[in-house]
């Protein structure tokens, strides 16, 4: 039955759904640092990186590496494609649950 669900498999996994939900709360021109995202999700850095890679490969998020002061920093943001896919996912989920 679950095979027939019109839910985007890239988003429909708890960890990535949490990542998408958190990044969707940002403004369209905002980015969140990796440690802040990690803190809001309560995930290990390795686990979060794995899921971020899948979302990045799907074109849903951008991962920007930069230098702040002397330390490397990583920022993440939803792409327009990611924002649209998340909107579609939310609608599909609401429809599926009879919302």
């Amino acid at each position: 039955m679950t095979d027939a669900l019109p839910l985007d498999p890239v988003i429909h996994a708890e960890a990535r759904l949490r990542v998408m939900t958190t990044l969707a709360a940002l403004g369209p021109k905002d980015q969140m640092s990796f440690p802040r995202l990690q803190e809001l999700l309560g995930m290990t850095a390795g686990n979060l990186s794995t899921h971020n890679r899948k979302l990045e490969e799907a074109g849903y998020i951008t991962v920007t590496k930069t230098i702040e002061g002397r330390s490397p920093a990583t920022y993440l943001a939803l792409t327009d494609t990611g924002r649209a896919a998340f909107g579609t996912y939310r609608k599909a989920l609401a429809a599926l649950l009879g919302g």
């Binding site: 679950t2 939900t21 809001l40 989920l93």
Partner: peptide
Amino acid sequence: GSDAGFDPAEALRVMQDQDAKV
């Protein structure tokens, strides 16, 4: 990486929970 066993109702709860946390 897909999660076929992830219940949609649970997904909704996860989203609401994360929204509230954020």
